[in-house]
Computed example of a mutant assay.
Amino acid sequence: MREPYFIVAEEVLFFFFFKAGTNPIEFSPDNVYRMQREGNSWSEPEAIVEPGEVMWQFSEENGTHFVSSYFGEHYTANLGSIVLHFNKSADGISWEPADEQNIISYSGGISEVGFAFDLGIWL
């Protein structure tokens, strides 16, 4: 289990993580999973993105959750084949591109991208 994140959306607690392979010298993400707190227990892990995609950073701004994620060849000699996404969600379940005109935010060699919001207004 890697990159664990908790978020609260619409008064529901969610837990996100991704499962990696078992080879300690190889980076091979399986999938990102989401669990939801239900009363005093957790739901079963549910795969939520394309196999191999990694959700990297979550943040909340004005009641909307945002996440950066990446997919592709990383930590190899084939640099430049990574696709980066920037998605948003109001409920923690349904995720969509933060900018519908740019579903792929970036394509190149960078994977673990962080972000922050300034005092501007998000439309």
Score class of each variant (00 low, 15 high):
110 I>A: 11
42 W>L: 11
38 E>K: 15
93 I>C: 02
39 G>K: 12
99 D>C: 04
104 I>G: 14
2 R>M: 08
100 E>F: 03
107 S>I: 13
76 T>H: 01
88 K>N: 12
71 F>P: 02
113 V>H: 07
92 G>W: 09
29 P>C: 00
91 D>W: 04
22 T>A: 15
99 D>R: 06
77 A>R: 14
119 L>F: 05
2 R>T: 04
76 T>F: 01
30 D>R: 06
16 F>C: 06
14 F>I: 06
15 F>Y: 13
64 T>I: 14
16 F>I: 04
61 E>N: 11
121 I>T: 13
64 T>V: 14
5 Y>I: 10
64 T>H: 09
13 L>I: 14
29 P>K: 01
53 E>R: 07
39 G>R: 12
60 E>D: 10
106 Y>L: 07
52 G>F: 01
77 A>Q: 13
15 F>D: 09
18 F>V: 00
43 S>M: 06
107 S>D: 10
6 F>S: 13
108 G>L: 03
101 Q>R: 13
17 F>A: 08
84 L>V: 14
43 S>Y: 07
51 P>R: 03
14 F>P: 05
104 I>W: 15
41 S>A: 15
95 W>K: 06
89 S>C: 08
23 N>R: 15
95 W>R: 08
26 E>Q: 14
61 E>P: 00
99 D>S: 05
89 S>G: 10
5 Y>A: 14
49 V>H: 04
88 K>A: 11
71 F>V: 02
110 I>V: 11
91 D>E: 06
64 T>M: 12
75 Y>W: 04
89 S>H: 09
94 S>M: 05
113 V>Q: 10
1 M>I: 10
55 M>R: 10
85 H>Y: 11
42 W>T: 09
3 E>S: 14
23 N>W: 13
114 G>K: 03
76 T>N: 01
45 P>H: 02
99 D>V: 02
85 H>W: 07
42 W>D: 12
35 M>C: 08
37 R>D: 14
118 D>A: 04
103 I>F: 11
99 D>A: 02
75 Y>P: 00
32 V>E: 07
110 I>R: 12
117 F>G: 01
108 G>Y: 05
82 I>K: 05
6 F>P: 12
56 W>V: 02
48 I>F: 02
50 E>D: 10
97 P>I: 02
80 G>W: 01
85 H>F: 10
88 K>M: 13
38 E>T: 15
